[in-house]
């Protein structure tokens, strides 16, 4: 009697998915770099908890033993290295796997390698431009507001040419952008992706336990954000109801991101990793309409209007 192996017609399907991870780029001397990292962690404890971190070693170019030591040192700080970026390296199975072909996540979308370099130059140029613009506004301070900028939101600072440029680029990139951004867990049906602006508009309230993750743009919530929920946005966060949950803006390193809400009862507000908790806001900005923004690496929460 013979047994024939059963024939499986069904083939295995492989699917590709892209995820967004934080990248740490250690620089020599490593001791100084670690010291800086520790200061940062002391400022934002728990920031790396459960977040995938990729180690970019193209700058440092360490040897295999050094890599192992570095992964260990980071592990002791609660940072789990998921993968390593190092061109031409061959790592043993005891180290995290190698990754290549990374794209930079920005407010405009994901940038390839060439675009990354171009963007670095652009940013420099924009910084110069900004200085220039600041000088300009000083001399034209009497000019009517309406002429200054259509996208200005706070009314208390000069036009930001960088912001204007981002707005323009975002519209072009909108098509490719929608695939990467989306809300997780939250009622997908309620989330209306207005692709044209790279903005995620959520018309329903955000319930406790829901988490909205939108790494490449602004998030607008028309309802309230419940205690025990979380919004993570690459850009700014606007809440037209009461904000009782956690709002994390500029999550991909955008220092100009802001958080606006009609009533601030938030558990935590964070911009670009700098955060403040409900306890710290007690008595000053709680219960009011506020905006939160970064001013020289300090998170300011000030009443609106």
């Amino acid at each position: 009697m013979t047994f024939a192996a059963p024939l499986h017609n069904k083939s295995i399907r492989f699917r590709a998915r892209s995820f967004v991870a934080f990248t740490l780029t250690p620089e020599a001397p490593i001791a100084d770099w670690l010291e800086g990292l520790d200061r940062w962690i002391a400022n934002s404890p728990g920031y790396f908890n459960g977040r995938p971190v990729v180690l970019d070693l193209n700058v440092l170019q360490p040897g295999p033993e050094e890599i192992a030591a570095l992964v260990g040192v980071l592990g002791s700080r609660g940072i789990r290295v998921y993968a390593i970026e190092l061109e031409g390296a061959e790592l043993g199975p005891e180290l995290p796997p190698l990754l290549a072909g990374a794209k930079e996540a920005t407010a405009e979308g994901l940038l390839g390698r060439a675009a990354r370099k171009a963007r670095a130059e652009e940013l420099e140029a924009a910084a110069e431009e900004r200085v220039h613009a600041a000088q300009m506004t000083q001399s034209t301070a009497e000019a009517p507001q309406a002429e200054v900028s259509p996208i200005e939101m706070s009314g208390d600072e000069p036009v930001d040419p960088e912001l204007a440029r981002l707005e323009a680029v975002r519209i072009e990139l909108a098509q490719s952008d929608t695939a990467q951004s989306g809300s997780t867990n939250a009622g997908q049906g309620a989330a209306d992706m207005s692709a044209a602006a790279g903005t995620l508009m959520i018309k329903a309230p955000i319930r406790s336990g829901q988490s909205v993750f939108h790494p490449h743009g602004d998030v607008i919530v028309l309802g309230s954000v419940a205690s025990g929920s979380e919004i993570v946005a690459g850009g700014s966060i606007h809440v037209y109801g009461t904000l009782r949950g956690r709002a994390i803006a500029g999550s991909e390193g955008n220092v100009s991101a802001r958080i606006f809400c009609r009533k601030n009862e938030a558990e935590l507000l964070a911009v670009d990793g700098w955060y403040t908790t409900a306890e710290e806001m007690e008595g000053t900005s709680r219960g009011k309409a506020v905006q939160a923004f970064l001013d020289n690496d300090a998170l300011c929460v000030v009443p609106l209007g």
Binding site: A186, G187, A204, R207, A226, G228
Partner: peptide, 8 residues
């Protein structure tokens, strides 16, 4: 509130 989120 959490349950309402799940219901939706």
């Amino acid at each position: 509130d959490r349950i309402i989120g799940l219901l939706d």
